[in-house]
């Protein structure tokens, strides 16, 4: 009986301790995340323009406009899905290839690692502007000198090439990050395993596919999660490289929300879109995490 009482008191004390250590950060979290989020839910049912003092509530109108395709959000969603699929695939493939190449005993291994990681340290906005210059002025100059039609086409001027341009910049920017994660993964594998595989007569490719890659699965989960969520949230590169053009065909979800909120002054609609955006990202990344975790537990 006494013992139970003591336990209770201990629990009570723990509560105070929790309050002491978690209280301030919870307060901050409430103030800057939870409360604004709640307010944005309220705004999403209104037609507020972002400035005026009058706010009229319009029920589910904003959501109606989103899902009926009237608000262009669905176009942006479709574009974002396509570019996410392509760039996630390429970023991870290239990242893994680079990691494999740069864990081998190559001369100048470290400078190469640094060089491939470098784009990651630059801001997306700046990258976008630099690449815009390369696509508009650099590529055509090369194309004219060498007479290569491939380079002198209007890279940012047509739908397909603008899409490709965004993929190129995304892959170039982010492959280095995946490479660093995968280098960590590959160099963490114990050399005994590899040696015994060698003794058993496994060829290098086989060793890679059957032993190294499965052991790297937790790292791949992280890379996938990070690349998917960052590709879905693509904004700066988009805004500085193509501005959504030509004719709005490369407008990502985030850029679409920005346009609606700040250019079209449809703040209510934009917050509704932001909510849908949040749910979409949550859903996609949760499914991805669930599936890769299941794969992990199957293999490891």
């Amino acid at each position: 009986m006494g013992d139970k009482n003591l336990n209770k008191k201990k629990k009570y004390n723990m509560l105070w301790g929790n309050f002491l250590f978690l209280g301030p950060s919870t307060l901050v979290f409430l103030a800057v995340v939870v409360i604004p989020f709640a307010i944005s839910i309220i705004y999403s049912f209104s037609n507020w323009n972002g400035i005026s003092n009058e706010i009229k509530f319009v029920g589910l109108n904003n959501f109606n406009n989103i899902f009926s395709g009237k608000a262009k959000f669905l176009d942006a969603f479709w574009f974002t899905l396509r570019i996410t699929a392509v760039s996630v695939l390429l970023i991870n493939l290239l990242g893994i290839l680079l990691a494999v190449a740069l864990t081998a005993r190559l001369p100048l291994r470290n400078p190469f690692r640094a060089a491939f990681y470098l784009p990651q340290t630059m801001g997306g906005l700046i990258l976008g502007f630099i690449w815009q210059f390369i696509f508009i002025a650099g590529f055509p100059a090369i194309g004219d000198k060498l007479n290569l039609g491939f380079f002198s086409q209007q890279w940012l001027g047509t739908e397909k090439t603008a899409f490709a341009a965004l993929v190129i910049v995304n892959v170039w920017q982010n492959a280095g990050y995946v490479m660093v994660i995968m280098i960590a993964a590959l160099s963490g594998i114990s050399s005994e395993l590899i040696e015994s595989a060698k003794v058993d007569g496994s060829r290098p490719l086989n060793t890679f596919l059957r032993i190294k890659l499965p052991l790297c699965i937790p790292y791949i989960t992280v890379s996938l999660f990070w690349t998917i969520s960052s590709a879905l949230k693509m904004f700066e590169t988009n805004v500085s490289l193509t501005k959504g053009g030509p004719y709005g065909s490369t407008t990502s979800m985030a850029l679409n929300i920005y346009n609606d909120a700040f250019a079209n002054n449809k703040y209510g609609l934009a917050t509704a879109e932001a909510l849908v955006f949040f749910v979409i990202i949550l859903a996609i990344t949760s499914v991805q995490l669930y599936m890769s975790k299941r794969k992990e537990s199957q293999i490891l």
Partner: peptide
Amino acid sequence: DGVAQAFGEAVQRFVA
């Protein structure tokens, strides 16, 4: 609000 941008994109689609 926002029509100028939408018009610009319409012009782009037209000339393309």
